[in-house]
Amino acid sequence: MSFLDVKDLKIHFPTDDGLVKSVDGLSFGVERGKTLGIVGESGSGKSVTSLGILGLHKGGRARLSGEIWLDGEELIGASTEHVRSLRGKKMAMIFQDPLSSMHPYYTVGQQIIEAYRIHNDVSKQVARKHAVDMLGRVGIPEPARRVDSYPHEFSGGMRQRAMIAMALSCDPELLIADEPTTALDVTVQAQILDLMRDLQREFNSALIIITHDLGVVAELSDDILVMYGGKCVEYGSAEDVFYRPEHPYTWGLLGSMPRLDREPTERLLPIKGSPPSLINVPPGCAFHPRCPYAERTGDKATTEVPALAETEGGHLVRCHMSREERRGLWENEIKPVLETQ
């Protein structure tokens, strides 16, 4: 069993319009010192998943089922109070927008001190020293002075560093970063990604990075999970997903993205249509209305939900096409087009 093991996680929200199946049977694992990247389009259920692991849906309208094992402990059945005591200490989170995610009326220092003192019985002075220390470690210049600044007095990059300092203040073993760099400029994004990579090595924590940017995933991840409509459609090592992808949706993502590291193509290869509604998920394979190969799998595409099946050594794909068919398509039709880029 992995350090974090998620099994058949379902998170559904009853709403006036119907049941929103934001996460529908997701399974994955992460080891300490390893990074899992979760990619998917807006609304595919990435944030709901991460909040679910942290137990932040408890007490809300959400219906959770499945199992979340963290270091041998099951969290979905655990008491709210117990999950709370793990939050911040054993598992922590970095959010997308560092400005709105920090309280505007407390100094950065106060917020880190608070995070530290929830789980450590120490005096304010000790916690403050720790906060200065953490700010220094995430690369904030003059930490002893900046500890008394308010979030609005920091630049975007510094705020995200402060968020990271806060999340790491109790030395968590699992760190979830939900779009940690989406709100930042590229040059600052590069700094933050470097920082996260270095800190992960230093703290040896398990890291989950959630993003819609394939570039960001490629920079950090050991394993990658591609989500579509609340389900995992492809899961494997970074090499599997980037060099031997087998799901038509993953191909679509790769083809949609202009790249700087290759000669530009004449045209991008977009995925037609738009992401599915999570209330009326298309029957059968949820991707079939947008899939160029839907015909190849005949009626099955619209009637039967394909299983997430192993194709080779831990590489999982959810598609009715046979392994050979998918590999043939990738080698002969998709890859050549992408690589002439």
């Binding site: 909040l51 942290l54 932040l56 007490g59 709370r84 005591s85 793990l86 939050r87 911040g88 200490k89 922590a92 989170m93 959010f95 927008d97 709105s100 995610s101 920090m102 309280h103 505007p104 608070e114 995070a115 929830i118 789980h119 968020m163 806060m166």
Partner: peptide
Amino acid sequence: GEDYIRTARAKGLRE
């Protein structure tokens, strides 16, 4: 509903 409330919860603060 603000993001910083979510952050406060994520820290493990009591409700």
